[in-house]
Design a protein around this nucleic acid. Sequence first.
DNA 1: TCAAGAATAGAAACCTGTTCTCATTTGGCC
DNA 2: GGCCAAATGAGAACAGGTTTCTATTCTTGA
Lengths: 191, 191
Amino acid sequence: MPEDGALARNQAVRRRRVLDATLALADQGGFEAVQMRDVAAEAGVALGTVYRYFSSKERLLLEANVGQVEALGASLLDDPPTGTSPADRVVDVLRRACAVLVKRPEATAAMVRALGTAQPSEAEAVRRVSQAMTAIITGAMHEGEPSERDRAVARALSQVWLSSLIGWVGGVDGPEVVGDDLERATRMLVG
Amino acid sequence: MPEDGALARNQAVRRRRVLDATLALADQGGFEAVQMRDVAAEAGVALGTVYRYFSSKERLLLEANVGQVEALGASLLDDPPTGTSPADRVVDVLRRACAVLVKRPEATAAMVRALGTAQPSEAEAVRRVSQAMTAIITGAMHEGEPSERDRAVARALSQVWLSSLIGWVGGVDGPEVVGDDLERATRMLVG
DNA sequence: TCAAGAATAGAAACCTGTTCTCATTTGGCC
DNA sequence: GGCCAAATGAGAACAGGTTTCTATTCTTGA
C-alpha cells in the first residue's frame, strides 16, 4: 500500500485546499459563512468530495482547529515561554494563545462553536485538541515529565480555557476576560 | 399594563407547555429529537407560536436549561449541602448536580449542546445559567457574602463544570469523569 | 355589546447541511 | 497500452430550522 503515490499526493492537496477554504470563509463571516457549498466552490472541488474528506461541517471545523492548536504548540518550540516561575510561564503561554485567537475573532468563533457542539462521532478530534492544549500547559510548567498533579492542573486549565472561549464567542464576556480568567485560574492552581 | 390578565395567563400556560414538550422530546432522543415541528405538535400550538415565544431552537433549550439550574438551586434551599469543610460542601453540591444530570442523559446532552453553541443573541440566557451555577457554588462554601476570591473560585469551577459536561455529551469522557474532574478541581481551588 | 388590534393556527416557502445518483475521470496494475 | 476499481464532478433530492403569509380567534377597552 504505497503511501506516497499520485493518488495520496492529490488527496493531500485537496484536503489542504478544503481546509484553507474553510479558514478563509471562517475569517470572513464566522460559522455561518462556512457554508459547505461555498467551501467546495472556494476549494475547487465538488460538494461530495468535501464530504468524502470531512464527514460533516462540524468535523471540518474541528480538523481546522486541530491544525491551529498543533501549530501553536509547534511555535512554542521555537519561541519558548518566558517567566521565572511555572505560573508565570503558564500565564505567558495562555496569554500568547489568546492573542493569536483574538486576532481572528470570526474564525475562532467558528472553531469554538464546533468544539462546543461536538458529538460522539467527533470525539477523536476533540480529544486531539484537548490533549494538545494540556501538553502545551504542562510543557510550560517545567522540564521533564509532568506529575499527576501537573496533569490535573493542566486539564482544569484547559477546561477553563474552553469555557472562557465559549463565553467570549457567545457574547457573554469580552475577549479580555478570557485572558484574565485564565491568569486568575492559573495563579490559584499553579505553584 | 395588567400583568395578570387573561392574555398573560394564557401565554404563561403556552410557554410552560412548550417548555414541557421540549424536555419530553429531549428526554427521548436528545438534541435531534427536539424538532421544532414536533415541539409545536406536542405542545398543541402552532409552529409560529413556538417561534413567537422562543426565537430559536437554541434559545428554547437554553430557557429549559435556565429552569433546570434554577430548580436545582431552589432544591438546595430545602436540602442544604452536607460536609464540614467548604470544599466538602462544594463537592457535595456538585456531585448532587451531576447525579441529577446523569439521570437524564439525553435531555442534558440537548441542553449542554445549546450552551456550547450559544450566540451573542442568547448571551442573556447563558449568563443566567452561569450566574445560577456560581451562586450555587458560593452558597455551598459558607454563610454570608462571598469574597472576591470565592467568586473567582466559583467562576472557575463553573467553567470546569461546563467543559466537563461538554466532554461527556461529546463522548470524549464517561459520565463519572464529570464528577471526578469537579472534585479534583474543587479540592485544588477551595480551602 | 362591539369594534380594533394583537395573538394564534395552519400551511407554504426558503435556506443550508446532508445524502444520493450517475456519468466521468483518475490512478494502480497487468 | 488497456482494464478495473476507486475517486471525483455535477446536480438533484431530502431534512429540519426558520421565515412568511393569510384567515381565524381571542383580549382588551370603550
